[in-house]
Design a protein around this nucleic acid. Structure first.
Lengths: 247, 247
DNA sequence: CCCGAATCGATTGCATGCAATGTGAATGCG
DNA sequence: CGCATTCACATTGCATGCAATCGATTCGGG
């Protein structure tokens, strides 16, 4: 059910990675001031972000006691967090060996972009039909910020803004299930080694494609918005495969 | 993020339902022979099924200690199970009051069927394109069993077979993400009060619509399969609304 | 030298206990 | 009689301890 542990894992990390190293990097994520009643949630969030940002790479074992020490909490919230992350498909729990960040196979990536094209298309269509107050302005603002970041070649910021743009779009669709699913899709995409925005010329393309979607939304043309969004995702998939396979 | 607690809840149960009653009914779900190492999973599964089958209805408080007693385990696995179910959107946890089965609002149902149409359509298309060995036969078999059940007016069995049919279709699509999402959709749909199959004439319609999808899959006509599946879902939505509002 | 089996160690899984916090009710005051 | 305030209880949240299980290693036999 979960996309895991395939033959051809696209992991960036080496093999036989002793967990201490990754967990060490994890400490940088820790925010003090732990508030009672939100320990587990905080831990879950921190670990999720750590995985998504690649701080914890696949083929490193995550042992409860180690994480507990790093987070300065007991094993209980760690244990719950790992279970939740396992449900999300981000980690794989192996009995008596600990949890491991799940690797994505090439097949998983392909499957991911298939459904992503569908869902992003649906989100664009719904957003266009509803066209809630201020959505177009928000999209344009984010895109403008992206343009500025692209000129400065601030890839990390560009990537974050890109996520923001897509989040805004799906929030505009106002469908809780769609939002949830696209959120899970985002998590899966973020686990891929690098961003596609490093590809030469890709940032400009993205800007243009985003504009095309925003324009369709503004005109409340659901069909056009869906088509533009789908095209955007198909192109993203192409670049992704080029980045993954070409490197 | 989760679909919860709207004004117009479609709950079937009354108000101010003391939890004891529901938890009492839950005991019937208990299988003895608890195996170590799977306690939490068993509990989670049992509670999920209990909620989906309506054994635990909304507006009943689920208190950890009570459930722990009912399941004859400690509060720890109960606690974890509730957290996981909360992540799935099946229960809502209110601080210091316990968890409660989440109610579905009318808006949620509409949103659900919007995305369901999309995803089932995609599943049908992918299944048609791949058309894995034996899929068509499996679909036809299930549909035949459904026909037989419909003639006997075995609604419960019919409903179960219907789920099986859709599961087979999405498994045939061979996309782990799609399968996961449709699984979540199924869970949401199953939480709705009654099945749409009680609607007069609906079973026969469903059979015909399933056949249309299966035919398109057999002909490996992805486009047709998607359209038929989408039409099936649009019709299902209509009936659902009629059942919900008409009653 | 290779293979099988048994033991040891490491790790997770669950039960229990304690602390913190919000709710509800009862009481006193205006 | 209504309202604010306070106190106590019920409930969840996390820490810790113990037991079970599985993998790895080592030892003995062929």
């Amino acid at each position: 059910m979960h996309p895991v542990q395939e033959d051809r894992a696209l992991s960036t990390s080496g093999i036989n990675n002793p967990s201490g190293e990754s967990v060490e990097r994890l400490r940088a994520y820790l925010q003090d001031g732990a508030v009672r009643g939100r320990t587990t949630d905080d831990v879950t969030g921190a670990m999720r972000e750590a995985i998504l940002d690649g701080v914890l790479s696949p083929s490193t074992w995550l042992r409860e006691s180690e994480l507990a020490t790093a987070f300065k909490v007991s094993r209980t919230p760690i244990r719950e967090a790992l279970k939740r992350l396992a449900d999300e498909g981000l980690v794989v729990k192996t009995a008596h060996h600990g949890a491991m960040v799940a690797a994505l196979s090439l097949e998983d990536v392909l499957a991911l972009y298939v459904i992503r094209e569908d869902l992003e298309g649906l989100a664009a269509r719904l957003a266009a039909v509803r066209c809630p107050e201020g959505l177009v302005e928000e999209l344009d603002e984010i895109n403008a910020a992206m343009r500025e970041a692209a000129e400065r070649e601030a890839v990390s910021e560009l990537s974050k803004l890109n996520l923001t743009w897509h989040r805004a779009l799906r929030t505009g669709a106002a469908n809780p299930y769609l939002e949830r699913f696209l959120n899970q899709v985002e998590h899966a995409v973020r686990r891929l080694p690098a961003t596609t925005l490093v590809h030469p010329g890709r940032p400009e393309e993205v800007l243009a494609e985003h504009e095309a979607v925003a324009r369709a939304v503004k005109e409340r043309n659901g069909e056009a918005a869906e088509q533009e969004a789908r095209a955007h995702m198909r192109r993203a998939r192409e670049i992704r495969l080029a980045v993954l396979l070409g490197s």
